[in-house]
Design a protein around this nucleic acid. Structure first.
Lengths: 137, 137
DNA sequence: TCTTACATTTACGTCAACGTAAAGTTATGT
DNA sequence: ACATAACTTTACGTTGACGTAAATGTAAGA
């Protein structure tokens, strides 16, 4: 009976990841080139760990939110424990808070956009109802 | 005594708008080139109406949310009343709803991001507190 | 009238984020 | 043994969103 591979040690090929998240292998290599992910190598080929996978998720979320790869890189930095002195940790904390502020501003933009469009939606529905009532005469 | 200019008829120069919203005049002309805004002309020079100003606000909000100019163009289309047949209005309504779905997905991404970072923030604060407690010995 | 400030168009330059083609390597099935 | 599939690197191409330079026009102030 073969040993179960512990989840921690699972690895993913570049194709598996690209299929799962619907990005091209080219993109994954590009992200590596830009220092966003650093998968292990078995000889030449890349082996992505669960941690790499998690980082990719963060990258893609960042993209959906419209951040540049550079900004995403900075955000990822915040996620990777530095474990330095208290001063460094304070600095990091500051960046955390700054990032949170950015996100909250963005959230307000979204709320506003959703409200605008929802209102427009309701208005349109009313117009349609009205025209239909006329036609039903 | 000079007549007060009614708000409706106020106009803005390209510089005024670019300063107010902190974008370059080049960008404004570029947006016009792409059909996102269409200011009046007094001779050669552009005169932006309050409606143009409002459109610009929508454009910039779209940008902050990471939409491309093409996507923003489509969104702007939704804001400009077409006043066509019921069939068209139904189609437009569909686009509205699709856009709203997109925005809601984006909102979930943001909520998740904010939660992640807030948690990390709290964790970091705890770490710092702990290290300080040690140092205080 | 001359300068200064802001406006215009035209056109080439740039940077990010990949796409794509070429040429080669490694593992897998028949 | 050989094809096929999936991986690799290198390098040039592309698209979007402007920047920037050049040449020109216009209106206001010294």
């Amino acid at each position: 009976m073969p040993m179960e591979t512990p989840v921690k040690d699972r690895t993913y090929s570049i194709r598996q990841l690209s299929k799962e998240f619907d990005v091209t292998a080219r993109a994954l290599r590009f992200y590596e080139d830009k220092g966003l992910i650093s998968p292990e190598r078995k000889g030449q080929t890349r082996l992505y760990s669960p941690r790499d996978r998690a980082r990719l998720q963060l990258i893609l979320r960042g993209k959906r939110l419209g951040f540049s790869l550079i900004e995403i890189h900075e955000i990822l930095d915040l996620y990777t424990p530095k474990d330095h002195g208290v001063a460094q940790m304070r600095a990091t904390l500051g960046k955390y808070r700054g990032q949170i502020e950015t996100l909250k501003r963005q959230r307000e933009d979204i709320e506003a956009a959703i409200k605008d469009m929802s209102d427009g939606c309701v208005w349109l529905e009313d117009q349609i109802d009205q025209l239909e009532a006329e036609n039903a005469q």
